[in-house]
């Protein structure tokens, strides 16, 4: 089949397919619709977590009001609020960066490369930051629960501590791996498209990812410090009130 024959077949498309053209009023309606793109999906995940973090901050503020006479709890809540505010700032920065790379007006290659590099590097930090939310949900929820049931932070024994820590670790791990599994699917698709575009693309992406990972080491380190600080805070709370 020669080129002319292919193009001739294609040119018949417009005559044969009754593609009902949309008028501008229909198109205007589409502009207000909801997006189902990967970019929107990632943004939605980050937004949802920001909302959750905001709610936890409110819960911690309420906890500190409830425990106004207990300076240790108030200090712990204040520490939690500061950490969460830091994480929210970090996530907002990531969101801004993501909006830049999610621009669909780039060439297909640039779009695929930037999205893949982001998802394979910086998004991991974002995932860690999102997973940490669970720790604070647990702490703020436990404090509210203790106040509602006992009117104070009740004494905890070793079994309580083991159970609480187990729940927290399961929650953190579950959040992290669930988010990562959802993204892995998108990553595989992006990799396949890049390989289809040009065999050398994946090599370029690998180099970019390696460079990005080096740059992101400080971010990851900071996140790990926050995570460690959060756990220490929780451990101190347990120790002060439990043992």
């Amino acid at each position: 089949m020669n080129d002319e024959k292919l193009k001739a077949m294609w040119s018949k498309t417009e005559n044969l397919i009754g593609s009902s053209g949309y008028d501008s009023s229909n198109i205007e309606r589409f502009l207000s619709g909801r997006s189902h793109s990967t970019g929107q999906y990632v943004r939605k995940m980050i937004y949802m977590d920001l909302v959750m973090k905001s709610l936890v901050i409110i819960a911690l503020v309420v906890d500190s009001i409830l425990y106004a006479g207990t300076s240790k709890v108030v200090s712990a809540c204040a520490g939690g609020v500061v950490l969460l505010a830091g994480l929210m700032y970090f996530q907002l920065k990531m969101l801004k960066r993501f909006s830049e790379i999610a621009d669909l007006g780039q060439t297909t290659r640039d779009k695929l490369v930037s999205m893949l590099t982001y998802l394979k590097t910086r998004f991991t930090s974002t995932l860690i930051s999102m997973s940490i939310t669970y720790l604070f949900v647990f702490v703020s929820g436990s404090l509210a629960y203790f106040f509602a049931v006992y009117g104070k932070v009740r004494t905890l024994d070793w079994i309580d501590i083991v159970v609480f820590l187990t729940f927290i670790l399961i929650g953190l791990g579950f959040n992290f791996f669930t988010f990562r599994a959802q993204i892995r699917y998108h990553v595989k698709h992006l990799e396949a498209c890049l390989s289809d575009l040009n065999d050398n693309n994946m090599l370029v992406v690998s180099e970019l990812i390696e460079q990005q990972r080096k740059q992101d080491r400080i971010n990851k380190l900071l996140l790990m410090l926050i995570l460690a600080f959060g756990f220490t805070l929780f451990a101190i709370l347990l120790k002060k009130f439990g043992m």
Binding site: Y22, F30, L31, G33, S35, S37, D103, L104, G105
Partner: peptide, 11 residues
């Protein structure tokens, strides 16, 4: 078609 219109508008 809707998704493309929306993305064109956003971009």
């Amino acid at each position: 078609f809707q998704e493309i219109c929306l993305q064109l508008w956003k971009a």
